[in-house]
């Protein structure tokens, strides 16, 4: 990322969500993005995830320039390289756990077996349950299975534990850590829970649309060790 800016609106009413962000993210890192609401971390994640376009600056994914892609190319990028985990899981209520994962494996280039993805998140026995029959933590784990099943290069997680109690939250973070370790997936986590930072390689602090500070974490904690 080089000089990335994002402005909503024009003139006096313009809101500067990003005011020039420079950052490089390494392969297989776990980075945690911290900052108050409106600090620009979501906008940053949206641009990186190919969900939004930048007003100026450049964002590169490997050799591909995201900031020059059109809607179709961005869709292809999301389809093949990126996985998302949402705060409210966003599972398709009409599909079972396995089918929710298959929804993604059917369109991805190099997916893993859906059952394997669900085993990975510890849901091997609840394959044929519908979202309405699963708890919040289980739903989030299905969501993670769905995100990792396409074997993405990057996993974007927006408040993945925001709707969960601490024990369940920890279990979900454990799954993210596992994925990172076993598959080498880069994981970017947005969170309000500062404690989550303990499991990251780097902690990126956002404020007023810019990166205030990047802290390297010398000793990564396992998810279970995190104090909530």
């Amino acid at each position: 990322m080089k000089g990335l800016t994002k402005t909503y609106g024009e003139g006096r009413t313009a809101v500067h969500a990003l005011r020039g962000v420079d950052l490089e993210i390494g392969r297989s890192e776990i980075d945690v993005l911290l900052g108050p609401s409106g600090s620009g971390k979501s906008t940053f994640l949206n641009i990186l995830g190919g969900l939004d376009t930048a007003s100026s600056g450049e964002a590169w994914f490997g050799q591909q320039c995201l900031t020059e892609m059109n809607d179709r190319q961005l869709t292809r990028y999301r389809r093949n390289h990126v996985g998302f985990v949402f705060q409210f899981y966003n599972l398709m209520p009409s599909l079972t756990a396995r089918e929710n994962v298959e929804l993604v494996t059917e369109i991805a280039d190099n997916p893993m077996d859906p059952d394997e993805a669900l085993h990975l998140v510890g849901l091997g026995k609840r394959l044929d349950h519908f979202p309405a029959q699963l708890s919040g933590g289980e739903q989030q784990r299905v969501a993670i299975a769905r995100a990792v099943a396409k074997q993405p290069d990057v996993l974007f997680c927006d408040e993945p534990t925001g709707a969960l109690d601490s024990a369940t939250g920890r279990a979900v973070l454990r799954v993210l850590q596992d994925v990172n370790e076993r598959l080498g997936t880069t994981v970017l986590i947005i969170t309000h829970a500062a404690a989550t930072a303990a499991m990251a390689d780097r902690v990126i602090h956002f404020a007023d649309g810019a990166i205030r500070e990047v802290v390297m974490n010398e000793k990564r904690l396992a998810a279970e060790e995190i104090e909530w």
């Binding site: 995830g49 969900l51 809607d71 179709r72 869709t75 292809r76 990028y77 999301r78 389809r79 093949n80 990126v82 998302f84 949402f86 409210f88 966003n90 398709m92 209520p93 929804l103 993604v104 369109i107 991805a108 769905r146």
Partner: peptide, 16 residues
């Protein structure tokens, strides 16, 4: 709306 947006995020084209 939310389901449809999720599909788009997951990489479904507009037609899909």
């Amino acid at each position: 709306a939310r389901d449809l947006a999720s599909l788009r995020v997951m990489g479904f084209y507009r037609g899909e």
